[in-house]
Amino acid sequence: MAFLKVSSPHAHGPMSTGRVMRLVLMATIPGLVALTWFFGFGTLTNVLWASLSALAFEALALKLRKRPIAFYLNDCSALVTAFLLGIALPPGSPLWLILVGTGFAILLCKHMYGGMGYNPFNPAMAAYVLLLISFPVEMTNWLAPRGAVPASELLGPIDALLRSLGIGSAPIDGVSMATPLDILKQNDALLVDDLWAQTPQFGTVAGIGWEWVNLAFLLGGLYLLYRRVFTWHAPLSMLLAIAIMALLFNDGGSSASGGGALFNLFSGATMFGAFFIITDPVSSAVSNRGRVIYGALIGVLVYIIRAWGNYPDAVAFAVLLMNFAAPFIDHYTQPRTYGHKKPNAQEKA
């Protein structure tokens, strides 16, 4: 390489992997605060157990593979996976569920493929999908948000810890309630407007709590965008695709409706997925044009599975499906480098 003889002044690239990862961790704070405010301390215990176990699994994998442990733990990528998984799981999930999830994510989805930078699937989302398919009862047990139940019903810090360890009596179970996406999916009798008026879980544009959680993740995501951790291509095209799909297939709110554009944008894991999951630099498409296609297809899949599939929230499935397609997208969207012909040109000729 010809990078050796460069003269001063030297510009120092401020972004190392560890720094980027720590920025991502910081940007989840508004979302974590919102989740904790509305759903109690369950999300924080999720994140705590996930972080501890992810670091342990990461250290174990590194030791088995004879890699420098401290160096790789310092880049915080295992912590990011843990945070993403902890946020995605229902608040106050049992410890064993979290252990299965992080073990699968770190050992199988990350280190079997060679560790940091090689994983073709987003580890947190692959683990989420595995848990959702294997343990549907635990994975759909969402607690009721503040506003739908009195604040005294929310999990306190001690209650959440006991609940995740499986110790304690029935009250610690909290009040579980279907999420707005669930309710909309199960509904086949009421018009959307009537459903909205009758169910306590609905708020201004989406579910009570959910709209604020999504706003908080949007805020964190915009901060990351401002710090140029990722480009706008994938998130914007995903959100646009969801909105366009929702507008195209909006039937004015019949009982079979998949919900309007605003509802879909501020429900479930939309914003979290758009800014924290699909922007994963490893498992997504690489070029900007590729990212637009990648994000848009995720948006389309999210709406399709939400509206017509079996699963109420589809971000994890959509991301995994497009992770699968990302290398193919990359192959056909290689940008032309200056002074060279288009790549793959001779293959097409």
């Binding site: 079997m112 493929y113 073709p120 692959a126 398919i133 017509w308 599939g309 589809a314 499935f317 995994l320």
Partner: peptide
């Protein structure tokens, strides 16, 4: 690793169930 990848892809395809 190819088998593991195929398994993960199969997991992803379960998302289409019920369509």
């Amino acid at each position: 690793v190819g088998m593991v990848t195929a398994g993960l892809m199969s997991l992803a395809f379960m998302g289409f169930a019920g369509l």
